[in-house]
């Protein structure tokens, strides 16, 4: 418990909780829009952004957020015009981002040591700038979902019906992708590039198994994500394990429980 008195530990826990809330809400909408793979694609595209930010000597976290939002919107633009299928567009940015990072890894000396923290995340290494950026971004993300909740549920139900009810489909899709790109970048700090999509996908997937209405599904998703972060960090401290693995492990356990419950019920 003494550990909780340290600034960096408090920052880490609050960051984890804020990211859990943002990711778990976004995840419900992404899965229902059949965009679950977007998390994996954009987190790997973000890897390219981190490398590019390092090469350009700018604050990598904020630069990566802007870079990923841009890439996410590019995916949306090219897939919505049916030039290439959505999943193929995501695969493209997935490999493009990693390729960019690998190239820069070869060019920038010392980047290799620094990469490890981004690949697997390090919740206890959140800087003050990253902490404030996370708070600000989380406020933006939660406000977005609160403000456009009705339009987003309608959009997840049917684009045709939503359009006739006055929803600007193109604008709403771009806003959703921008916010989702932002939460994916935030989750990199908590669980790393490799596990970033799990923060978005697993709590939402668990909630979709248990929820009996849309609102209850969103709330369950938040509860699953927040409790996984708390349990994950606790286990990591107690057994001296990497927090990213234990957070995602807790999520998997909760998902398995929900899945089992559903199977037994049927």
């Amino acid at each position: 418990m003494e550990l909780l008195n340290y600034d960096f530990v408090q920052r880490g826990i609050i960051t984890g909780l804020l990211v859990a809330v943002s990711c778990s809400i976004a995840g419900v909408f992404l899965i229902l829009r059949r965009m679950a793979f977007l998390g994996a694609g954009l987190s790997h595209a973000a890897f390219g952004g981190i490398a590019l930010g390092t090469l350009l000597r700018v604050e990598p976290f904020i630069f990566t957020a802007l870079f990923t939002v841009l890439v996410g919107n590019l995916v949306q633009a090219i897939s919505s015009r049916r030039r290439i299928p959505g999943d193929a567009a995501i695969a493209l940015v997935f490999s493009g981002g990693v390729a960019l990072a690998v190239l820069i890894l070869g060019l920038v000396k010392g980047f290799g040591e620094y990469v490890f923290g981004y690949l697997f995340g390090n919740i206890l290494m959140v800087t003050k700038e990253e902490f404030f950026f996370t708070i600000l971004s989380s406020v933006v993300v939660v406000s977005f979902f609160a403000l456009f909740y009705r339009k987003l549920v309608l959009l997840s139900f049917s684009e045709e019906v939503a359009k006739l009810k006055g929803v600007n489909i193109t604008l709403m899709n771009h806003l959703l992708i921008s916010v989702s790109s932002l939460v994916i970048v935030l989750s990199i700090k908590v669980v790393g590039i490799i596990l970033a999509s799990s923060m978005v996908v697993i709590p939402a997937l668990t909630a979709l198994l248990l929820g009996r209405s849309f609102m209850s599904t969103v709330l369950i998703s938040v509860v699953v994500a927040v409790s996984s972060v708390v349990v994950g960090i606790g286990v990591a401290f107690y057994y001296d394990l990497p927090p990213s693995g234990s957070i995602v492990g807790a999520m998997i356990l909760l998902f398995s429980g929900a899945f089992l419950k559903k199977v037994l019920k049927n």
Partner: peptide, 16 residues
């Protein structure tokens, strides 16, 4: 509509 779409009838009607 996605198979796991969770909204109830009342929620859907309340959207519009």
């Amino acid at each position: 509509v996605e198979q796991s779409f969770p909204a109830t009838v009342e929620e859907l009607l309340s959207l519009v």
